[in-house]
Structures are given as C-alpha cells and as structure tokens.
C-alpha cells in the first residue's frame, strides 16, 4: 500500500494541475477576503463575529479546493484514460481508491492550512489598511489553522468519493464549485436551521468560522467532526462502490 500511495503522490507532483489549483485557491481567497475586508461597513466588520465571517472564507475556499484536489485524483485519470494503466498495475480497484484517499487527504491538509493562514493574513492586512482594530484572537487563528486543516483533509476524501462516482471532470468540478460557493453559502447564511448540517457548515464548526454565518450558529467542534467524518465516509464508500462495480471503458 505504501508503494501505491507513493505512486499517487508522484502523480500529484508530475503535472502542473496541483500547483495551478493552489494558485487559483490563493487568487480566489485574495479576491474574496479583500473584497469583504475592504468593502464591508466598519460597523459590520468591527465585532468579532463579523471578522470571523470573513475569516471563514478560508474554511470555505480551503475545503472546496481540498475537495477539488481529491476529485481530480480520479476524474483526471478518467479524462485522460490513465485509469486503465493504473488499474492494469493494480487491478484490485479498492486498493487504488484507498491510495488515492490517503494521498488526497495529505494534499487536502496542506490546502487547508495554506487557505486558513492566507485568509488570516489577508484579513489582518485589509483591516489594518482601514484602521479597523482586530477583534479575533490568537485562539481563533489557532482553531482555524488546526480545525480548518482537519476539515480540508476530510473534504479531500469527499472529493475522491464524488470523483469516483461521477467520473466526468467538468461535471464534478463545476458541481463542487456551484455547491460550495453558491448553494451552500446561501443556505448556511439564510437557512441556518438546515444550513448548519451541510458539509461546509460542519467544516466551519470544526474550524470555528465559516463564510456568511456567525460561529454561534454552528453545531460545535465535536458534532462537526462527527458529521463531517460521516459525510467523508459516505462519499468515499459510494465512490469505492462505483469504481469496483462499473466497467472501465
């Protein structure tokens, strides 16, 4: 299994896709966090909750890109046909899925810590530029870095599962982006009773901040971890089942 995981990590490193995704993530974060930090009314930005809502984009965007990294581990292989040589070397398909889960979770953890750290730096700079005092604490940042990273790792597993089940790269990537940036963000912000149970809100509960909603409206660390781990297990199981049952044409 170590050899298979090393092969998957080598696949991540030997195309530009991974680097491009991380750059896109940084670009999107810069745009969204600075847009909020520089344009929201000072009255909305001064309280700690207001600042955490903006910081929460680090959670939202970090977990989205972790899911994309995980999904691409499979959809790129289906798109280019490399799934065939991959399965010729390792015909026991569940082993390939497990190796992809391991390699993607590692990549997802890295994406998570980068996103949370970058978001915190951007917001600090944005607030400083407007002379708004920082009201989030060092503890908040530590929770974001630890919790957001963990949540992103679980989101990478969700991405692997969805990629394995859907196979089509464009559909998978578009679907994940629309879900995370549009549907989930709106539901979390406007229908908190249901929105707090979405994967994104569960990630926010672990990280202590999510875009568009105050931390007090989230389900808390331990329930968030349980819920998101449940989503990850369900998606990975669904994906493994789809990969092992269907023909590779």
């Amino acid at each position: 299994m170590t050899a298979l995981i090393r092969s998957e990590l080598l696949k991540q490193r030997t195309t530009r896709t991974t680097a491009l995704l991380v750059l896109s993530m940084a670009g999107l974060l810069a745009l969204v966090v600075l847009l909020h930090a520089l344009s929201l009314k000072p009255a909305n930005l001064t309280p700690r909750d207001g600042q955490l809502k903006v910081l929460g984009w680090g959670t939202g965007i970090g977990t989205l890109f972790a899911a994309l990294l995980g999904a691409l581990a499979l959809t790129a292989e289906f798109r280019h046909g490399t799934i065939r040589p991959t399965l010729l070397v390792t015909p026991r398909r569940e082993r390939v899925v497990v190796a992809k889960l391991a390699a993607s979770v590692l990549a997802g953890l890295a994406a998570g810590i980068l996103a949370e750290g970058f978001a915190a730096a951007l917001e600090t700079a944005g607030l400083a530029a407007r002379g708004i005092p920082i009201s989030f604490t060092g503890g908040d940042v530590a929770r974001l870095l630890g919790g957001g990273t963990l949540a992103a790792g679980l989101f990478a597993a969700i991405g692997v599962g969805i990629g394995a089940a859907v196979r089509n790269q464009v559909v998978t990537i578009t679907g994940l982006c629309i879900w995370s940036l549009l549907i989930e963000t709106i539901v979390i912000g406007n229908v908190p009773a249901a929105g707090k149970f979405t994967p994104g809100a569960a990630a926010g509960a672990i990280a202590g901040a999510v875009q568009n909603q105050a931390p007090s409206q989230l389900i808390g660390l331990a329930p968030g971890l349980l819920l998101l781990a449940g989503y990850a297990l369900a998606a990975a199981g669904l994906g493994a089942r789809a990969i092992t049952r269907r023909d590779i044409t």
Binding site: A3, S7, T14, H80, G81, T82, T86
Partner: peptide
C-alpha cells in the same frame, strides 16, 4: 492515448513503476 498530456513520458512510466 492513455496518458496525461501534462505529464512527461518518463514520469508516466515512473508513476506505474512505483506502484508496481
């Protein structure tokens, strides 16, 4: 055509060799 166009020929073979 079972190759990732963005990966070099050598790295394509290396990913398979490492797994095996």
């Amino acid at each position: 055509g079972d190759f990732d166009p963005g990966r070099s020929g050598r790295n394509h073979l290396r990913t398979l060799a490492v797994a095996a």
